[in-house]
């Protein structure tokens, strides 16, 4: 006597609940592939630096005048994002809109600081391979921030329209995941371009 296996489902959620759904998995694949892109950019930086001759580093002690505040801005924007997500999950819609708006403004501030940083550099894109990798890496990073800002615009709109609830909020949690990721990427770029020279990278004889 054989017994047939028929799955005996319990109650199952229909569609995504909070962050439980294939959309979150999708966002993790985005993160995997985008993180790889930046890993290759940083690899290129270290490769060019390691193979380069003396003086490759155009700024042996990179100015932190804008980079340090941008880092702070990025981290604070994450805190606001987190707060916004918590607010959506506990049904406080207007708090969520406020928090997301703050995160958005901080994102805009980050972009502004980066552009000021660019303008303060004594070199341009075509000056040398160091300048090229610096501007292309930070430029691609800025593109990711602009995408994130665009996401926030719609997130604020949708949240104010009352689209999300404690239950239906995968769009919110996945967007927040993206924002945390973009911040993490900035930290890696900051460590590479602004901190590693202080630790001696590229400053050998």
């Amino acid at each position: 006597m054989v017994e047939h296996a028929v799955s005996q489902p319990r109650d199952l959620p229909v569609g995504p609940t909070i962050s439980q759904g294939v959309g979150t998995w999708g966002m993790w694949t985005v993160i995997a592939t985008e993180a790889s892109l930046f890993a290759y950019l940083l690899f290129s930086y270290f490769y060019l630096g390691a193979q380069g001759s003396q003086g490759w580093l155009l700024e042996p002690h990179p100015s932190l005048k804008y980079a340090l505040p941008s880092t702070a801005v990025a981290l604070i924007s994450c805190a606001f994002t987190w707060w916004g997500v918590r607010s959506v999950l506990s049904g406080r819609r207007s708090t969520a809109v406020l928090a997301f708006s703050a995160a958005l403004l901080l994102g805009v501030a980050f972009v502004g600081l980066e552009i000021l940083d660019w303008q303060s550099k004594p070199y341009q894109l075509g000056t040398s391979s160091y300048a090229s990798i610096y501007f292309v890496t930070t430029g691609l990073d800025l593109v990711h921030w602009l995408v994130g800002i665009g996401i926030f615009v719609f997130l604020i709109l949708w949240t104010s329209l009352g689209y999300f609830s404690a239950r239906r909020s995968i769009v919110v949690t996945a967007s927040a995941l993206y924002w945390y990721f973009v911040t993490a990427i900035w930290l890696a770029i900051f460590a590479t371009f602004y901190v590693s020279p202080y630790l001696g990278f590229g400053r050998w004889q």
Binding site: Y47, L125, S132, I133
Partner: peptide
């Protein structure tokens, strides 16, 4: 755009 990633004359690396 005149970058120098692969161009040795601007500090680039062919092997990159």
């Amino acid at each position: 755009f005149g970058t120098h990633f692969y161009d040795p004359s601007g500090g680039g690396q062919v092997l990159l």
